[in-house]
Measured scan of single mutants.
Amino acid sequence: GPGLTDLFKTEKAAVKKMAKAIMADPSKADDVYQKWADKGYTLTQLSDFLKSKTRGKYDRVYNGYMTYR
């Protein structure tokens, strides 16, 4: 089956995709945050998933999740 690194890459891609969806349409934020909360994502995990070469690119999404939880 898929190894943990593959799983991480898949999760990371999914999280980034959802983060971009929030940035494009902030009204989606609560739905996405709820999904992440259901998956039990911690802020540390989210921070790892949303690492970007562009500093602060996903800060709004991260901060939103922090206040959501």
Rank of each mutant, 00 (worst) to 15 (best):
L46D: 00
L7C: 15
K39E: 07
L46P: 01
Y33I: 01
A21E: 15
F8W: 15
R55V: 13
T10W: 10
A24N: 12
A24S: 11
K51A: 09
W36R: 00
M66I: 13
K16S: 04
D48F: 15
E11C: 06
V32R: 01
S52P: 06
N63Q: 11
T5H: 11
A37M: 15
I22T: 03
P26C: 08
G40H: 05
T54W: 08
Q45I: 09
K17N: 07
K17F: 08
D48W: 15
T67R: 15
K51W: 09
K28V: 14
E11H: 05
M23D: 02
T67F: 12
T10K: 15
E11V: 06
A37V: 14
T44Q: 14
R55G: 10
A37K: 08
Y65H: 00
S47L: 07
A19T: 02
G56N: 08
D25A: 03
M23I: 11
K35D: 11
Y65V: 00
K39L: 11
M66N: 07
E11K: 04
A24Q: 11
L4I: 14
D6Q: 09
P2C: 15
K28Y: 07
G64L: 03
K17G: 07
P26I: 06
K51D: 10
L4R: 09
R55I: 14
S47R: 15
A21Q: 11
N63L: 14
D48K: 15
V15W: 02
K12I: 06
I22W: 01
M18F: 04
Y33K: 01
T44A: 14
K57D: 05
K12Q: 15
S27Q: 07
R60A: 14
K9P: 07
K17P: 01
K39M: 13
Q45F: 04
R69Q: 12
R69V: 14
A24D: 11
T44S: 12
S27L: 08
A21R: 07
M23V: 05
W36Q: 00
S27N: 07
T42E: 04
V15T: 03
K39D: 05
S52Y: 05
Q34L: 06
Q45P: 00
L46W: 01
Y33Q: 01
A19C: 03
I22G: 01
Y41C: 02
V32M: 06
G56T: 06
V15R: 00
A21W: 08
D48N: 14
A14S: 08
K57G: 04
K53C: 08
K9H: 08
L4Q: 13
R55W: 08
A13N: 07
A13V: 07
D48Y: 15
D59H: 07
S52G: 10
P2S: 13
Y65G: 01
Y65P: 00
V61M: 03
Y62T: 09
N63V: 13
D38H: 09
Y65W: 03
R69H: 06
G56L: 04
Y41Q: 00
Y33M: 01
I22Y: 01
